[in-house]
Design a protein around this nucleic acid. Structure first.
Length: 462
RNA sequence: GGCGGAGUAGCCAAGUGGUAAGGCAGAGGUUUGCAAAACCUCCAUUCGUGGGUUCGAUUCCCACCUCCGCCUCCA
């Protein structure tokens, strides 16, 4: 497949550098609360990315970390009166539940920062040894960005300005005397009283690793010095990913990531999503409003990953209808396929355009459109041809990670409801419209919908 | 101030130097005693604004307007 690369700023064909499996790393969540739909736009698109590769026959190795120690997790655990590990374990479990509901495949490896302290310390030691890092008097260790020529390459920021710390006129609180340069970032944070019990020992004293370091250390551990692709939300381009590149290339050599895949943030109701505006939705918030996770997934993949996506509650309602329409189309196709078997599972038939869209810079909205036009095109197919089209449709759905709603199982109809409905049908058959309509209203009031047919009727829960 | 992205129908959203996918909503029709459901059909002479290049621009160029992101730990 072809995908835009943040570093080179061009769409490039992806090829596994080891020739067999495609190995990639995604920056995972900081587990201090429930993730919101903005977070999930990133994780869902990364999931579609992986599914498209796998559908295309490429094996993958998907590594995604859990940030389980930082200011927010420490503060959160203290506020909750829990040990850090217990606190983060709870939110990690919640994250997994949400991901599963959204149809995201679990990564093959999901390392946590706390479990990789020695690896992080080792990386700092290597950096200090090569003079890319230095210890400050308070026991913190910083990376010297002036020592890395390519600093700023990924974010395309002016390196000289970054080194001098002149990128922003408004940086007022430049009172960090510990650092050689204002722009140097922390690798090891010296222990502070507010860290509580959350500190580890190191050659520089007690403290904890800086945020950027965990990804570099875990990538080295599980993917080595060079790997295929690194992904995250756009906001991570600078400084997080820029810093990872600096740390990893200076400590290990190697090329680090061959390709950078960043997902643009979403907007809510055309504006910024924020807690204060009350539009920062979690899956739980949306469930309370009656919107299931598949509707959320549909909306999240409804815009191209490099464009802002305007998330609205109306679009969720639209997603439900769209999913129902797809399910209906699939059932109709299955009915026309009858019991015929698929002989030729190669190619995507009427859904070829949708498949190509996914492989062309992960164009999920175009692929969704192709699902509908494909179904229309397939509506004339019968027997084996229909079965093959259905197989292609289902493969595409799996690539998108969509699960279609099942038809409502025939609900248990209470005897009194059944009796009322029979009575209504009798009245209707006798052309007693007044009685028939009254009984229909009656049934509606009890939560049952009557669907009349020529030879009889069906009852459905409203 | 620097770098980057976006502005396409009521809403969401693809796309292209050659005359605008798809979804939702809406409208009409078939069916129905009337509804519902189902099925069918319709729904942007136009792509933020103003110029320019071109046989032709929504697509390329310039200017302007509006919105958004990043510019030191936010997906």
């Amino acid at each position: 497949m072809r995908l835009f690369d943040t570093l080179s700023r061009e769409v490039r064909e992806l090829r596994p550098i080891d020739g067999s499996s495609y190995r990639f790393y995604c920056c995972g969540p900081t587990v201090y609360g429930p993730a919101h739909i903005g977070n999930f736009r990133t994780f869902v698109l990364q999931d579609v990315f992986r599914r498209v590769l796998e559908t295309g026959g490429t094996r993958t190795l998907h590594v995604r970390n859990i940030t389980d120690v930082d200011d927010k997790t420490i503060r959160g655990s203290q506020a909750a009166g829990q040990p850090l590990a217990e606190f983060t374990a709870g939110w990690k479990a919640k994250f997994h539940t949400d991901c599963e509901a959204l149809g995201c495949l679990p990564p093959h490896i999901e390392p946590g920062a706390v479990d990789h302290i020695p690896q992080q310390v080792a990386m700092i030691e290597a950096l200090v040894e090569k003079d890319h890092a230095y210890a400050a008097p308070d026991g913190s260790v910083y990376f010297r960005i002036a020592s890395f020529d390519r600093y700023g390459e990924l974010s395309h920021l002016d390196r000289r300005e970054l080194v001098l710390g002149k990128t922003q006129e408004t940086r007022a609180n430049a009172d960090e005397y510990e650092k050689d340069s204002i722009a140097d970032f922390v690798l090891w944070k010296a222990r502070r009283p507010e860290d509580g019990d959350n500190f580890w020992s190191s050659p520089w004293g007690e403290g904890r690793p800086g945020w950027h370091l965990e990804c570099s250390a875990m990538i080295r551990e599980y993917l080595g010095e060079s790997f295929d692709l690194h992904s995250g939300g756009v906001d991570l381009v600078f400084p997080h990913h820029e810093n990872e590149i600096a740390q990893s290339r200076c400590a290990c050599g190697g090329n680090f990531a061959a390709h950078w895949f960043h997902i643009t943030h979403l907007l809510v109701d055309g504006g910024k999503m924020s807690k204060s505006l009350g539009n920062l939705y979690t899956l739980g918030d949306l469930a309370e409003r009656g919107h299931g996770p598949m509707e959320v997934r549909y909306v999240l993949i409804g815009a191209h990953y490099r464009k802002p996506l305007n998330f609205t509650l109306d679009s969720l309602a639209g997603a439900r209808e769209a999913l129902a329409k797809l399910a209906k189309g699939a059932r109709a196709l299955a009915a026309r396929a009858g019991g015929d078997h698929v002989l030729n599972a190669v190619g995507f038939g009427p859904f070829q355009a949708a498949w190509e869209a996914l492989n062309d810079d992960l164009n999920t909205p175009a692929a969704l459109g192709g699902l509908f036009t494909g179904l229309r095109e397939a509506s004339s197919l019968e027997g084996q041809a229909a079965a093959e089209a259905l197989a292609a449709f289902n493969r595409l759905l799996r690539a998108l990670g969509l699960e279609l709603p099942e038809p409502e199982p025939d609900a248990e109809i209470p005897a009194d409801i059944q009796a009322l409905a029979d009575e209504r049908w009798a009245a209707r058959s006798a052309k007693d419209w007044a009685k028939s309509d009254a009984l229909r209203d009656d049934l509606a009031a009890r939560g049952w919908l009557v669907k009349d047919g020529r030879e009889g009727y069906q009852l459905e829960p409203a």
